[in-house]
């Protein structure tokens, strides 16, 4: 059995994954916790963040990233993503 759930994204980010040094400061700083670390590694050999639905465009990730990896965007109308979740 599974249920569907809709997640609203009011914003989005771009991530410069090749510059990232894998410190994970953005992961802990994101209020809705929509960033996760990759299992793959970049040219520096470190894991980097990836974006999931639910970003608010708050820019907390950008303000705590020591390596200037983020650009932050906001949508005029929230973008909806429907996901399936085990009930």
């Amino acid at each position: 059995m599974s249920e569907t759930r809709t997640i609203k994204s009011r914003g989005a980010v771009t991530i410069d994954v090749e510059t990232c040094k894998g410190c994970e400061l953005c992961i802990v700083a994101c209020p809705p916790r929509v960033l996760s670390m990759s299992t793959e590694v970049n040219q520096l050999g470190v894991h980097y963040p990836r974006l999931h639905p639910g970003c608010t465009g708050c820019a907390a990730c950008l303000m705590v990233c020591p390596d200037f990896c983020f650009e932050v965007f906001r949508f005029e109308e929230p973008v909806l993503t429907t996901i399936e979740e085990p009930a």
């Binding site: 994204s9 980010v13 929509v34 996760s36 999931h52 639905p53 639910g54 965007f73 973008v79 993503t81």
Partner: peptide, 13 residues
């Protein structure tokens, strides 16, 4: 772990 798929974050949405 956040819910939902990994979104494209290479280019501006």
């Amino acid at each position: 772990q956040p819910a939902g798929p990994v979104l494209d974050s290479d280019a501006a949405p």
